[in-house]
Simulated scan of single mutants.
Amino acid sequence: MLENLRTLGRVVRTLATKDPVTRVRRFYEIQSPDVEFAARTSRYMNVGYWEEGVTSIDVAGEALANKLADAAGFKPDDTVLDVGFGYGDQDFAWLRDRRVARVHGVNVTPRHVEHAQERARREGLADRADFQLGTATALPFPDASVDRVVALESAFHFHPRSAFFAEALRVLRPGGTLATADIIPLSNDTPRMSINSGPLSFVKFSLPDENWHDRRTYGEQLTAAGFGNVEVHSIADRTWEGWRRFQAARPADPAFRAAVDGSAVKGMANHWRDADLIKKELGLLDYVIAVAQKP
């Protein structure tokens, strides 16, 4: 019960925050990691890419990270900048599996940065993995200094996303690639504030109006920023429903119930109880992989 009250307090504080960067940081401090990652093997924070038969969000989360790496065209000698990296699980996977030369991470949430920094030290990767506080619209890197810029389910927060596109173009070397996995509406005609279900509250409270636009506008903004070879394609059919099924089933999972107290189980069940509304509103959202190249 005490943790529920603390969570409620963090929600109220977040909603009262006017500064967009601080609001996003506080949004990611609402949920206790002990609950968010209970009975899990990773700290992926994305909705996942759900292949047929996949039932684990840890597997789906890494699959989405791999989809983004494929889209970005990672090569072993690349320097990668990951903007809004969460806890950094994808960065360690890319260092291990893609053997990229170096990963830089920028994030506005101190909890995330500290966790990733400590993991890099613990795993002996501090010389290849650098994580720091910073914002997507003022990247702390020189011009033409990285080969790939990626944002794994984070760019919808950036205020505005178009300013991030300009910064990504600046820091990329000629021929470098920007790739995002991102959340947008299917139609510009859908009012952002019409999304009312609890699990999609981030649409109202941590997504700026400037970022609420469809695939076509997304591509136009990349082109306007100076990118070429722009592609924006939907993977919504492999994201939202798998994520919803996993989260809705979690309160009944014995491992989850054993790892958290009863109030957290009840809170999760209440959060996901209105399946019809959640499905309806997920049907208004797209999920895209966007790729663009610096000339």
Rank of each mutant, 00 (worst) to 15 (best):
L5P: 08
R6V: 05
T7A: 14
T7P: 09
G9S: 07
V12K: 10
T14M: 01
T14R: 02
R26I: 10
F27D: 01
P33I: 07
E36A: 13
A38M: 01
A39F: 03
R40P: 11
M45S: 08
G48M: 06
G53L: 10
V54M: 05
V54D: 11
A63T: 01
A65P: 03
N66L: 05
A69Y: 04
D70N: 07
G73E: 02
K75D: 01
D77H: 12
D78T: 12
T79Y: 01
D82N: 15
D82E: 05
G84A: 01
G86F: 00
G86W: 02
G88K: 12
D89I: 11
Q90G: 05
F92W: 13
A93N: 01
R96N: 11
R96D: 11
D97N: 14
R99V: 10
A101P: 02
N107W: 02
V113R: 06
V113Y: 01
A116L: 06
Q117L: 07
E118Q: 14
R119A: 00
R121A: 02
R122M: 10
G124P: 02
A129S: 03
F131C: 10
F131T: 10
L133Q: 09
A136L: 15
S145I: 07
D147C: 03
V149R: 08
V150M: 04
A151M: 00
A151D: 04
A151E: 05
A151Y: 07
L152R: 08
S154P: 13
F156W: 08
F156M: 12
F158H: 03
F158I: 08
H159Y: 06
S162Y: 04
F165T: 04
E167Y: 04
E167K: 15
A168V: 05
A168R: 13
A168I: 12
L169T: 07
R170G: 11
P174W: 13
G175K: 03
T177A: 11
A179L: 06
I183T: 13
I184P: 04
S194R: 05
S194V: 02
I195H: 05
N196R: 10
G198E: 00
L200D: 08
V203T: 14
V203F: 10
F205R: 07
F205G: 02
P208V: 14
P208G: 13
E210A: 15
N211C: 11
D214L: 08
D214R: 12
R215L: 10
R216H: 04
G219I: 00
L222Y: 00
L222N: 01
L222Q: 02
L222K: 02
F227I: 09
F227G: 04
G228P: 05
N229S: 01
N229D: 15
H233Q: 12
A236V: 13
R238G: 05
E241S: 11
W243I: 08
R245Q: 13
Q247L: 11
P251E: 06
P251I: 14
V260H: 02
D261N: 15
S263I: 09
V265Y: 00
K266R: 15
K266P: 00
K266Q: 07
K266N: 09
K266S: 02
G267C: 13
M268D: 06
N270A: 15
R273D: 12
A275F: 08
A275S: 14
D276Q: 15
K279Y: 03
K280N: 10
G283A: 11
V288L: 15
V288H: 01
A290V: 04
A290M: 07
A292L: 03
A292D: 07
Q293R: 03
K294Q: 08
P295S: 14
